[in-house]
Write a protein that binds this DNA or RNA. Structure first.
Lengths: 339, 339
DNA sequence: TTGAGCAGTTAAAACGTTTTGACAACAAAA
DNA sequence: TTTTGTTGTCAAAACGTTTTAACTGCTCAA
């Protein structure tokens, strides 16, 4: 055999027509069982594999999904938020189990990301992942919708959000964290994160946290908040600035684990003991969280389920079925940083 | 416009033939500058994107690489070795900068992994990544070579290895670790990892480590070795068994950071202090390493460079150019676990 | 005996590119 | 004037599938 075997070769050796080969291999009911057997036989012998390009071209689909991962601008270029890496794993698995390939791409700048995977028929749909500036993204979302691109976002389900989302119940997660700190009687709490419309997820976490405190008659002080994006560095600096301003607190809620880890570093450096002087609670339950010193109390997001829902919902969307936004339940993981 | 624009539509509006459109967009020198400008103009207006399937089918290539990631069998299914996740990041970036897409796939079982990405024209070449049982893989490698599949492996460059590899200088890394422990005068050292032909990388690390000790007149005791695969769990149990057998040592070299982290947990549990009683050195420098308590001294592998070399070498192979196995220099990172 | 219905198969028409070979139009050389 | 190139452009032939529409032989009912 010269090059790679084609369906015509199989047809020749099996003594049938090429169209029958195509049908046989795709288990069409139109073909006789005996014929199918023969075709399979020959195909195996010649190590024949259907050419995906030809098949996709003709069928006008790609059986591939694309994953766009937005990175926080961080000092070390090659470090990606471990939470999203965990999601990546489950998304890959979900794709595989549905017979789809997964194309991945990291997008660094928030301004002009490429989402032409569907236009160019490289993917049937797109999954968007990452903590980015939500306000920046909105315009892009709309243009994707206009072009009728099929996509799903991981992130907060803000009211009137135009796109389809799967997200953790960030508000509920914030409540869980508050509940815990109230129970251990650490009511003088600081918050590190971005509680603006730019990061709706962090905002929702804060909102749930605050509301739960309020419900218990405790008001959080605005002064004990500091802005941070989801990096260790940012959490470190935000916490340092609180300390530098002589803000006093006996507990701290960080909008993400990375921030929490940075906060712990800052606290320690300032001679403040965790958990004795300050209890710390994070969000995400990334792998590192159990290795920090002390191990980090945090709100877990179910990444496995999240990945599956992203894929399932996107596939539904592609098939034209009705899909709803999905909210996933969070879970509190208590560790040494808050007992 | 009804469906998606094709090159014929562009041709129509630009007043040229379809073949000219194709050439213009691919910047062929055969087309007049003025014509090209007009074609680009129209293409942009109609939001035209070249159909990858058609293009790939015709050109008989896919401008896509596939990444096969082998997972260690670990307790938590969805946890992937963070070292490989770091590599994933740099591989993705390298692919993107070369204009290639990256298809990723996790392979769980060592026995029967799929590598038909090339046969089915979904990818032009394959990158294999993961600590797996090398002996198991050999047969598979040979069959891939027979089918003339283009692939590169990350891993040890064993003598006579049939496939193309990119790897860290594991032997040299082992020497770096030894050197450090000798310098701080911790000569009574234990080793946790698998020093057999099944994991050539771990073996090379151990070999370099041992040779350096020998060169300084110190012989490592066979009794102070324990087998482990690259997980925290495995490192924990291996170390526990050493302790249970009353093996005494004042330093410990782990074949990977995950193992080292497990080892530290076991030591602490047994009331053995790190670094006071036992100095610990790991390998990989995963992100977690700087957050452990104490922070972990380790041998760093340059994942950015590694990812680039994997991609570059694979592309060379695909283009039919001559390629050599590549060895990357390791670097010692000294942290609290060994001072 | 004819006609309809069914099961299995086939030839041929897409799918949207890239690329080969041919052909204009025009300028420069003979 | 004819020849020889050069520069753009084009029509048509791949690439390897999936799928439509048509066509065999059949069997069964009228």
């Amino acid at each position: 055999m010269k090059g790679k075997a084609t369906s015509f070769d199989i047809a020749h050796y099996a003594g049938v027509s090429q169209s029958t080969v195509s049908r046989a291999l795709r288990n069409s009911p139109l073909v006789n069982e005996e014929t199918r057997r023969r075709v399979y036989e020959v195909a195996k012998q010649l190590n024949y594999k259907v050419d995906k390009n030809a098949s996709n071209l003709r069928a006008q689909q790609s059986s591939t999904l694309a994953l766009l991962l937005f990175e926080d601008p961080t000092a070390d270029e090659s470090q990606i938020n471990p939470f999203f890496l965990a999601m990546l794993g489950s998304i890959t698995r979900a794709c595989a189990s549905e017979g789809y390939d997964l194309l991945i791409s990291f997008q660094s700048t928030s301004a002009d990301w490429q989402a032409d995977y569907e236009d160019s028929h490289r993917a049937d749909g797109i999954i968007l992942l990452g903590y980015g500036d939500y306000v920046d993204y909105q315009a892009k979302f709309r243009s994707l919708l206009e072009q009728n691109t099929k996509f799903v976002c991981w992130g907060a389900s803000v009211d009137n959000r135009p796109d389809l989302t799967v997200s953790c119940d960030n508000y509920g997660g914030g409540k869980l964290a508050a509940d815990h700190l109230l129970k251990v009687n650490r009511k003088d709490c600081a918050f590190i994160g971005d509680a603006s419309e730019h990061s709706p997820e962090f905002f929702a976490r804060y909102q749930g946290f605050k509301d739960e405190f309020t419900r218990h008659g405790v008001t959080l002080s605005e002064r004990k908040m500091a802005n941070a994006i989801s990096t260790e560095e940012s959490g470190y600096h935000a916490t340092r600035s609180l300390i530098a301003n002589n803000i006093v607190f006996n507990s701290l809620f960080a909008a993400s684990d990375l921030i929490a880890i940075g906060a712990i570093r800052a606290l320690k450096e300032a001679g403040i003991k965790v958990p004795e002087d300050v209890h710390v609670v994070g969000f995400d339950n990334i792998a590192v969280a159990s290795f920090t010193n002390p191990p980090l109390t945090t709100v877990q997001q179910d990444t496995t389920l999240a990945g599956q829902m992203l894929v399932f919902n996107l596939l539904k969307l592609i098939r034209g079925e009705k899909v709803e936004n999905t909210l996933l339940p969070p879970k509190l993981i208590v560790r040494g940083s808050s007992i």
